[in-house]
Simulated scan of single mutants.
Amino acid sequence: MHLAQELVAYVDRLATLPDVYLKVRSALDDPDVSIAEVADVIATDPSLTAALLRLANSAFYGYARKIESIQRAVSLIGLEQVHDLVLATSVTAMFSGIRPQRMDMARFWRDSVRRGMLAREVARTLRGVSPERLFVSGLLADAGHLVMYVAVPDLMALVLDTPPGDGDTLPDVERRIIGCDFAEVGAALTAKWQLPVTFGVLIGAQLQPETAGDNAPAAALLNLVSAVATQAGDGSDYEYPLHHRSEALAGITRDEVEAVLPSVEAQMEMMMAVLANA
């Protein structure tokens, strides 16, 4: 049986985020940092610069005028949001070179983008929830599976080949066979990356959102969005386990989340293209 932290330690390729992200995060940790200083750090990486400008000029933000400089983009988008978008583009680049056996990476990435975009759009309708933070949390919500497929491929194959019992969910089977579930592993990965604590709390509590304390509404939203996005995807052997209190904790119904899905699907190709070139 394995602990989530053990699985993360096995995966060297996912152990460290790119230097440019670490430099951006270090700059943002300085309370006196200026927009120009953050823009200068981002500008040292041409691919990141291009990716952020594509995002800033996409329908994702919908600004009326074209944004032609990183400093202008940072000014308009905001420092915390820029951090989260730099993180999203950095993670995209890391995931692109990984091809674990028995994992459909094209489907994994499409499902991740759908979940992130849906989380962001729903979060925009609620108070006290950061849309960009939910976007990245949705993008990373299933990253634990990526670690598990790379670290223990034989055990994951056994999970996939095990017929679900009465009332079984995918995390139930994972805990029984591997010793931990994908949410635990995803949270351990964010800790390994030393991301802001909120990401680990949301991803780790997505299956039991009431355990997230003050972040319970956001964790419940992630649970609700993940259930809707999984159902809208290309299919899975298991249904994503919707928690019975997610609607009440998040303050929104599943029907209301599903109503947002068509607008997300309409923008999927745009976002896939933007992130693919990150």
Rank of each mutant, 00 (worst) to 15 (best):
K66F: 10
R127T: 11
R175H: 06
A157N: 08
D32G: 15
A106S: 14
Y61G: 07
L55W: 12
L221Y: 03
A9W: 07
R175V: 12
R114G: 02
A232Y: 05
I35F: 02
A27E: 13
G128A: 08
I42F: 03
V129T: 11
V159E: 09
Q81R: 15
D234F: 06
A64S: 13
H244C: 02
T125W: 00
A227L: 03
S246I: 06
G213N: 08
P131D: 10
I35V: 15
W193E: 12
N277W: 01
E132F: 01
E239D: 14
T89L: 08
L139N: 00
S226P: 08
S47C: 01
D234C: 06
Q267M: 15
G251C: 04
S96D: 10
R176C: 02
A187W: 02
F108E: 03
H243M: 05
L222Q: 03
E247L: 11
F199Y: 15
T190A: 11
A51W: 14
P100D: 09
R99W: 03
D234N: 14
L14G: 09
A205T: 12
I98V: 11
E6A: 12
L261A: 06
A157T: 12
A73I: 07
I35Y: 05
L14D: 08
A205V: 00
T211V: 13
P153K: 02
A59I: 00
L224D: 10
P18A: 02
I252W: 12
V136P: 03
I98W: 00
A39P: 04
A15D: 10
F95I: 12
L134E: 05
L140E: 06
A259G: 02
L126T: 00
T253L: 13
L189E: 08
V260I: 15
S236F: 13
L22V: 08
Q71A: 14
L158H: 09
Y63L: 08
R107M: 12
P209G: 00
